Each structure stands twice: as structure tokens, then as C-alpha cells.
Amino acid sequence: MDYEKEMFLYPKTCFVCHESNLDLLRNCKCGVSLCKIHENDFRHQQLCKHLSLAFQLSMMESPPDLNGLIKFKPETAFPSSMQEFLDSFFQFKKRNEDLHKLMLSNLHTRPLTFVYAVMKLNLIDSFMVIHVIGATGMEVATYANWMPVFFLLKRLQNLKIVFIGPKIFSESYSLDSFFHDFPSCLKMEEATLQVECHALRYEQYCRSDLFVQPNIILGYNLNLHESELGMSDCTWKDTILMLEELEVPFALTAGSEDRARKDHERLCKLLGKSVDYFSLDKNPFGGFIPERDFETEELLYSNQHVIIYDGFYENFDGKKESSESDFVDCHIN
């Protein structure tokens, strides 16, 4: 359980010096402890507001009601950031606008990161298959939030998402009727979204009769490097070698730039060679909800950075430019 993990990841010690004598500690409203010497620590003061938000959101018993927020506006320009996307696709009530934007950013960061990756790779077709490796139950449960990709990618008509991971349930969904719940648009009436879930390791799935060739493979916040910290057994080697065998573009996200670079180093070790990435950038479509980072004791954000590989080549120098024509020109009534 998450609260059990937190007992070990965030022990009750001073945020600065890790003093563990409870008589010398006081609790801050943000959820961290400070000793008497460091109760006015400048680094803590800088982070306190964000840590408080992370703490409050983690203590919410149930998520806020987001129904009725979808009010598509007739925007034609592709959003350059998560903030622009939220302002274009949703109409908020002032009372809960900030909270709703936080929640929606984390719900839509995965599909928008997919759009960002395929745009950079110029990898868009009318029918696409995506593999999401190391998938979580949350990712599967929020599959409906992939709907906006049909508005954002001009050529895309049919999308199949295959979630693969040992901790999910095996299911199949066909969501072509799902779109009737949204404001009318010819683009949506023609779109089809299919979802498959397979409770397997990725290499097992690829060797099975269930396998469907993907256009791109996605790994969200996999934290590959944590296997070196003794956090868990390393089960990624066979998966990474399978990615090399498939020779399909791979996008890997992380909660911070430091974590992204550590994941890249770990991926190279698992491959047994040093490889170049196509790009490593701050993701303009990362989530807004702050989370405590046990490695730095500061903050991370879902999908904050993204590494894109166009094959695991030792000396890959190619560059691909995105094109404005790949984005939708769809007026919503």
C-alpha cells in the first residue's frame, strides 16, 4: 500500500539534516518534519507551498467531480503546452478552476505526451497501434481521456491502445460509441478507439499470439533506474532487449530531468551498449500535480521530461522535424 511505502521512503526525520530524535522535531503543515535548528530553512520555505499542495491532494478521500467541464471551443491552433490545452478544451467555473486544472492535467498528460512524441518523429497515420508498457491500473481506468488525440492529429482515424503489464487485468474495449457523448463533430463520428489490456510481461506478450505490431511504444514514469537502488527486483532487461528487437520508436517519460537521465543510463546498461536518444526534453504536456521525490527530497511531476528513441542505435544522428499540417483543423459546434 502507498502509505506503507511512505513509512520507509519518507521517514520522520528532519527535512534538512535527518535528525530523528522526535523531541527535537516539529511537523510543518506541508507534511515534512524540521528540527529546531532548521525550522527556518530557506530550501524548505521555497518548497513548502508545493509540498503542502502535494500533501493535501494525497489526503483527498475522493477526486473532485469533473463532469460537465468539457466545453470544446472552436480552436484550430495546436496547443503548445498543457495550460493552452486546458484553456482550449475546457470551460471552468472560477470557484474550483485551479483544482480542476491540476486533476485534468494528470489525466491528460499521457495522451498528450503521445501526441508530442509522434509529432516530433513525424510518425502519424490514419490507423495507429500504441503499446503502453509497464501499464498501471490507473492508466487503464482513465483510457477515455485519450479522446482529444483525434481532435489534435489531423490524419488519425483509428487508434488502438494496448496496455501491457503484470499488475493489470486482461480486458478489451471498443469505444467507437463512446464519442457520441461529446459535442458533435464529423471528425469524432468517424473515429474509433480500441483498448486492449494484457496482464503479462512485455516480452511474454510479444512472443504470444496476442501480439500486434505497434507504431510506437510508450513507457510512462517507469523509473528504470530505481532497480539499482534496491527498491525492487530488476525485471526490465528482457523488456528492453525486446524493444531493441522490435526496432519501433520508444518514448520514455520521467518525473524530473535527473530521473530521465538516470533512466537513460540504466537503459544503456540493460542493452549492454551506449545508445543515443532522438531527443530528451522537458515535456510541455507534463502533469501539474506535485509529488514528493524520495531521491532528492524535493518534488517531481508526472511525465515532466520525455526521452524519445527512434531505435537503439549506437551512433544515431538523424533529426526529424514536426509539421504543422499534422494537426487538426476541426471546428467544434
Rank of each mutant, 00 (worst) to 15 (best):
R26L: 12
N223M: 06
E84T: 01
C197F: 01
M119P: 14
F182D: 00
V132P: 13
D2E: 15
L299Y: 04
K167S: 13
E196Y: 05
A251K: 01
K101E: 01
M60I: 09
H180P: 02
E19A: 08
N67R: 06
M82P: 00
E97R: 14
F85H: 00
F42E: 11
F250G: 08
N145W: 14
Y202V: 02
K187N: 00
T235D: 09
H100F: 13
D125Q: 15
F294A: 04
D238Q: 12
E39C: 13
C206A: 02
Y10G: 06
M242S: 08
E4D: 15
H198Y: 08
K5V: 11
D65L: 03
S177F: 11
D326L: 11
K120P: 13
R201M: 03
E84M: 09
E257I: 07
E265P: 03
A254S: 13
M7N: 13
M59C: 11
K12M: 09
T253Y: 03
L229N: 05
K29M: 12
E97I: 12
S325G: 08
D293S: 01
H18G: 05
G31S: 04
I240C: 04
Q56H: 12
L22G: 08
M59D: 08
L86P: 05
F114P: 11
S126C: 06
D317M: 07
L243P: 07
F178C: 02
R110T: 15
H108F: 15
N303D: 04
E196P: 05
